[in-house]
Amino acid sequence: MFVYEKKLQYPVKIKNINPKLASIIISQYGGPDGELGASLRYLSQRYSMPYPELKALLTDIGTEELGHLEMIGTIVHQLTRNLNEDQIRAGGFEPYFVDHTTGVYPTAASGSPWNAAGMAVKGDLIADLTEDLAAEQKARVTYDNILRLSDDPDVNDAIKFLRAREIVHFQRFGEGLRLAKDRMNEKNVYLVNPSFDQ
């Protein structure tokens, strides 16, 4: 089950408001490669995993991603506090503001609301772990792109941390695949689906 611990994984203390940056960073909240998709993907995939290492990996990384979702929500919240109307207009923030004011809503920077179509649960060990490898790379690229677009050191500090996590997760998913492979048919890993076949 889930227990909440009343602290962030890494400090988020944004000194300067920046609604324009907030409307970019929101993509890591509700965008196709963001933390909401990541956590739901991993926490959903774990049920059909046959080996304990993979159940643990998906549970632990999925849980960590919820903590990252919280950090992104915090960044967006702090970037949009105490806004006046001129700041909203200057930031190009109006389309988001009209529907959500300065609430934190799971959407992509494009305005598309979060969609489960951005994640997959195929119920096959190799397909799901390969999907996870791809997901971590896409998240890493999104963080690279945020770092290109942002020159706020407080924001970049937290974003760098989140990006580094994606690389570590990629490594662990790759290791999970290696461990699984050792238990599968040596000549043909695709003979059966260990997530389904007895």
Binding site: Q9, E53, D60, I61, E64, V168, H169, R172
Partner: peptide
């Protein structure tokens, strides 16, 4: 947390 993830694949 980091060691925990490492230990999942290096128990």
């Amino acid at each position: 947390d980091e060691l925990g993830l490492y230990l999942v694949t290096h128990s």
